[in-house]
Computed example of a mutant assay.
Amino acid sequence: MKHLRLAALCSAVLLFVLSIPFACQKEKDSNKVPEGQQRVRIFLSDNPVNFDKVNVDIRQVIVQVIPDSCRGRDNNGNDCYDDDEYRCSVWDTLDIRPGVYNLLDLSNGTDTLLANGFTIAGRINKIKLVLGTQNSVVVDSVSYPLTLWNNNNTVTIQVRGQDIDEVTSDELQLWLDFDAGASIVKVSNNRFVLKPKLKLFVPARTAGVKGKVLPDDARAVVSAVANGDTLIAIPERHDGRFKIRGLRGSSALVLINATRNGYRDTSFTVNLQAGRDTDVGTIRLRN
């Protein structure tokens, strides 16, 4: 089981939650969506990695929309869009609170509003994040800068139809998964590079696993392996609570790796159901 620990520590997942319902401010929540537009709300959440902090400087969030005016019908009567996406597409910049976010403050299902705004009505085709230069990681209480890979400050994510949860015709929801283990590259003892790896998932179409791991001094790392993917959670220090979201498939192998004080690892298999969290209860590690 110990040989799984490094894989578990290196494959943590950080979650952005993107909703494309939009609520401006409270006073605008009751307003109808303007004709020809749709609501967009973006939340930020996280499944952590084994660092003290992961600070990401987010400057802009932009979405590419293929307007409804580009939509036609194929030979089977299904909606389709003009192949010339660059002629049809519109890039809309959302309102955000630009700044540095410590992603580890947003763990085990916690979300924070990152960006919101109206976009032109149509198909969401891409999401683009624009990053600043104030990125860093903290390891053993020492802060190290995160250099952008090839000085590239933009991350673009392709959106497919299955990635979108359509609440209504003008309210859409997306969740963006930021894989920190694959995104933070250690190139030397004191140099780290940020090369973001991201993907989308929809909670209603994927499953979750939650529970508690005790005692705290085992410093456990929980990983769930399902459908070829490995997702990670680090239990909360005060009560051992953890939650992993975005799992695909009908079952998951749950691995609990103790990293300190001689506690023994354990593993078990759980059944998964899309749109629900499987509660594994309280797991007490032995030494």
Rank of each mutant, 00 (worst) to 15 (best):
D79W: 15
D170H: 12
T206E: 09
D46Y: 03
R71A: 13
V130H: 02
R59C: 02
T156H: 03
V221I: 15
F242R: 03
I96W: 08
D170T: 15
Y101Q: 06
I164E: 08
L6A: 09
G275Q: 03
D74R: 05
E166Q: 09
T278K: 05
V202W: 09
V185I: 15
P34I: 12
E166R: 15
N78L: 14
N116Y: 12
L106P: 03
S89M: 15
V193L: 01
A233V: 00
K128E: 10
F242E: 01
A204N: 09
N189D: 15
K197Q: 14
S30D: 14
I58V: 06
A115G: 10
I120H: 11
D239K: 07
K128T: 14
K197S: 12
V270L: 10
N50R: 15
F16D: 10
F242M: 04
G262L: 02
L104K: 07
S169E: 13
L114H: 08
G77P: 04
T119G: 03
L148M: 08
A233D: 02
Y101M: 04
M1N: 01
R71T: 01
G72Y: 10
S267L: 08
K32C: 12
T168C: 06
G246V: 04
L113N: 11
A182N: 14
G161F: 01
I120G: 11
L129K: 05
L9H: 03
L44M: 14
R59H: 08
I232H: 13
L146P: 03
V155Q: 09
Q158S: 07
P34M: 00
H238K: 11
T112M: 13
Q64W: 07
R59A: 07
E166I: 08
P48F: 04
L44C: 09
A204S: 15
T206V: 01
A226H: 05
R241I: 03
S45V: 04
S267R: 05
G249I: 05
I234H: 06
A182T: 09
N227P: 05
Q37K: 11
V222E: 03
V270S: 12
V49F: 11
V254F: 04
I58T: 02
A7W: 13
V63N: 03
I62P: 02
V270R: 00
A204Y: 07
G132A: 01
D177S: 14
R123K: 04
K243V: 10
N189T: 13
V193N: 02
T93S: 14
L113W: 06
P235N: 08
K197L: 05
R276Y: 11
S45T: 12
Q38L: 10
V222R: 00
L103H: 03
A182G: 12
D95G: 05
N227A: 12
L15R: 14
V139W: 06
V138R: 09
D217A: 05
E236H: 10
N78C: 08
P145S: 13
Q173A: 15
K126P: 00
R219K: 15
D177C: 07
Q60L: 14
I164S: 02
S136W: 04
N151L: 13
N287P: 12
L94F: 01
E35Y: 07
D165A: 10
L176V: 10
R73T: 11
V209A: 00
R191P: 02
G249E: 10
W149G: 00
W149S: 06
V13T: 14
V33H: 05
S223H: 06
T154I: 10
